[in-house]
Amino acid sequence: MEDRKMGRGKIEIKRIENNTNRQVTFCKRRNGLLKKAYELSVLCEAEVALIVFSSRGRVYEYSNSNINNTIDRYKKATSDAASTYTTQEINTQFYQQESKKLRQQIQMIQNTNRHLVGDGLSSLNVKELKQLENRLERGISRIRSKKHEMILAEIEALQKREIQLEQENACLRGKITENDRLQQLSMVPPGQDHYNEMHAYFARNLLQLNMIEGVPVFSPNVDKKSLQLGLDLLG
């Protein structure tokens, strides 16, 4: 007794050549697809939109929402995804290129620094060595010029400071001299200044009196005895 297989066998997926059979299959599977779309929207609360065009150009659609809104949402989602992917890809390429350039620059700077201190010169040819030599000479010249400029600035500052100190020293010497003079004046005995003033006053008055009375004056200095007598009288 032959074994019989239960159920339908697998159908090879390819175009159905018979027009009638193709139309029947289309109707059955279309309805099944619409049913599955409905079940998916209900069971999973998914927003579903289904559009089917037959070979004759007829359109069949299903949507649990406004199909135009669903299509617009689909366009926006696919557009944002494409833009995001494109932007990320562009940024990635840009950063990769910049990173490569920076690594090259760092390597070049490191090699130059090694050459400046005399290391790694075996990889340079005569022309490159000459360029390195000229670069070092220009650098030394600039260093010496800067050092000379700084030394001149320091000398100028010291000269200004010297002039300032001389002025301060002269001012201090003047103050010391004035202080010594005041100390000498403070050492005069009490009443001596008054005595000298009175002596000069009496001498002037006596000289004028003698001139009025016709007394000859033989000397610009008045007789000391007369001055003393006048002072005694005043005393």
Results as ranks from 00 to 15, higher is better:
residue 30 R to P: 04
residue 31 N to D: 15
residue 32 G to M: 08
residue 33 L to P: 01
residue 35 K to N: 02
residue 37 A to F: 01
residue 38 Y to E: 11
residue 38 Y to V: 14
residue 38 Y to Q: 07
residue 38 Y to H: 08
residue 39 E to P: 05
residue 40 L to F: 07
residue 42 V to C: 00
residue 43 L to K: 14
residue 43 L to I: 08
residue 43 L to A: 13
residue 44 C to V: 11
residue 45 E to A: 10
residue 47 E to D: 11
residue 47 E to P: 11
residue 48 V to A: 03
residue 49 A to L: 00
residue 50 L to P: 01
residue 51 I to E: 01
residue 51 I to N: 02
residue 51 I to H: 03
residue 51 I to Y: 04
residue 52 V to A: 00
residue 53 F to P: 03
residue 54 S to M: 00
residue 55 S to A: 09
residue 56 R to V: 07
residue 57 G to L: 02
residue 58 R to L: 06
residue 58 R to T: 14
residue 58 R to N: 11
residue 61 E to S: 13
residue 62 Y to Q: 01
residue 62 Y to N: 02
residue 64 N to P: 01
residue 65 S to A: 10
residue 66 N to Y: 00
residue 66 N to W: 03
residue 67 I to N: 01
residue 68 N to G: 09
residue 71 I to P: 01
residue 71 I to V: 00
residue 72 D to Q: 10
residue 73 R to I: 10
residue 74 Y to H: 13
residue 75 K to D: 11
residue 75 K to F: 14
residue 75 K to N: 14
residue 76 K to G: 00
residue 76 K to P: 03
residue 77 A to E: 13
residue 77 A to K: 08
residue 78 T to V: 10
residue 78 T to D: 05
residue 79 S to I: 02
residue 80 D to S: 04
residue 80 D to F: 04
residue 82 A to W: 08
residue 82 A to L: 12
residue 83 S to T: 11
residue 84 T to E: 11
residue 84 T to Y: 15
residue 84 T to G: 12
residue 86 T to Q: 15
residue 86 T to N: 15
residue 87 T to I: 12
residue 87 T to V: 11
residue 88 Q to W: 08
residue 88 Q to I: 07
residue 90 I to S: 14
residue 90 I to Y: 15
residue 91 N to K: 09
residue 92 T to E: 14
residue 92 T to N: 10
residue 93 Q to W: 04
residue 94 F to K: 15
residue 95 Y to N: 03
residue 95 Y to S: 08
residue 96 Q to A: 10
residue 96 Q to S: 12
residue 96 Q to W: 06
residue 96 Q to I: 08
residue 97 Q to L: 06
residue 97 Q to V: 05
residue 97 Q to K: 06
residue 100 K to M: 09
residue 101 K to P: 04
residue 102 L to N: 13
residue 103 R to D: 14
residue 103 R to H: 05
residue 105 Q to A: 10
residue 105 Q to K: 04
residue 105 Q to C: 06
residue 106 I to H: 11
residue 107 Q to K: 15
residue 107 Q to E: 11
residue 108 M to Y: 09
residue 108 M to R: 13
residue 108 M to C: 06
residue 109 I to H: 10
residue 109 I to R: 08
residue 111 N to Y: 13
residue 112 T to A: 15
residue 112 T to C: 07
residue 114 R to P: 06
residue 114 R to I: 05
